[in-house]
Simulated assay, not measured.
Amino acid sequence: MSLPLPRHQRAHGRAELGFVHTQRGTVLKHLYNAAPLRVLFPTPEPDDVPLAALVNVGGGLAGGDSLEVSVRLEAGAGATVTTPAAEKVYRSAGDITRLDTALEIGPGATLEWLPQETILFDGARLERRMQARLAPGARLLAAEMLVYGRVARGERLGHGALFDSWRLWRDGRLHWADAMELGGDLATPLRSPFGFGGAEASALLLLSAGQDAALAARDLLRQQGFDATLPRPGLMLARWLGPAGAVRESVARALPMLRADALGLPARLPRLWTS
């Protein structure tokens, strides 16, 4: 007599956020969250936009878990969405961990999407999809960072799977698309000089704004020694590969400069990045 294999409990969290611009400034219009995802609202600095923090109360994600996030800003609104800590993706027995994000930014609205890093444990299997839709005059400043293994413990990502996809629409038309896929033996491409060159982490910083703002942001980052480019009109990209600490430090240096130069916001990181 053979017994059926046990079925593991899976977590499927969801968060929905909606902001609207009023005479009092930007205020929350819609909120929904389902465990293990919760949304907290730390008090922002008096001169800053509303701040929302996405919290995974489960402490990490296993194979078969999923998180869905939807953020909508109506015309003229401004907000920052971040996380209080790094997200951890644990080793999987075979199932995929899924992270799906949908951003909708109305005319003249400004959204900062600034989660802290995602750490891939050895054996993790992650599928992450980002979709952002920008109306005329909308602005998006976004940063995401991946760490390949628990580097603080000396662990490097050796096997597993990663699919990371970005789709950005502006004025109803696809403006930029990007994807990365790795599977099976991950140690080889991560070590290869023609791949990741032994990097512990990678990061992407994106600014979608007007052409003048994107051009000024590119020049500003280049003046600070960062690699930045304009793959499309009005879209600035910067990427980093290297030691996990150095990559995070570079992103943390670049963000305040872009907040001030491109968005007219205070030159500071979200408080949760430094607390």
Rank of each mutant, 00 (worst) to 15 (best):
V39H: 03
L40W: 04
F41S: 14
P42L: 11
P42G: 14
P42A: 14
T43Q: 09
P44I: 07
P46F: 03
P46T: 13
P46V: 14
D47E: 14
D48C: 01
D48E: 13
P50A: 13
P50V: 03
P50W: 02
P50Q: 07
A53H: 02
A53V: 14
A53Y: 04
A53P: 00
L54S: 08
V57T: 15
G59P: 01
G59Y: 08
G64W: 01
L67E: 12
V69N: 07
V69W: 01
S70N: 13
V71K: 10
E74T: 10
G76K: 07
G76I: 09
G76Q: 06
A77D: 13
A77S: 12
A79C: 12
T80M: 03
T80Y: 00
T82M: 01
T82I: 04
P84G: 14
A85E: 15
A85L: 05
A86F: 06
Y90N: 01
S92R: 05
A93N: 12
A93P: 00
A93K: 01
G94P: 00
D95E: 11
D95M: 04
T97A: 15
R98G: 07
R98W: 04
A102L: 08
L103M: 12
E104F: 05
I105L: 04
P107S: 15
P107W: 06
A109S: 11
A109R: 05
T110H: 08
T110E: 10
L111K: 04
L111N: 07
L111Q: 03
E112F: 01
W113E: 09
Q116L: 11
E117G: 12
E117N: 13
E117Q: 14
E117K: 05
L120D: 01
L120N: 02
G123A: 12
G123D: 06
A124N: 09
R125I: 08
R125C: 12
R125D: 03
L126K: 09
L126W: 02
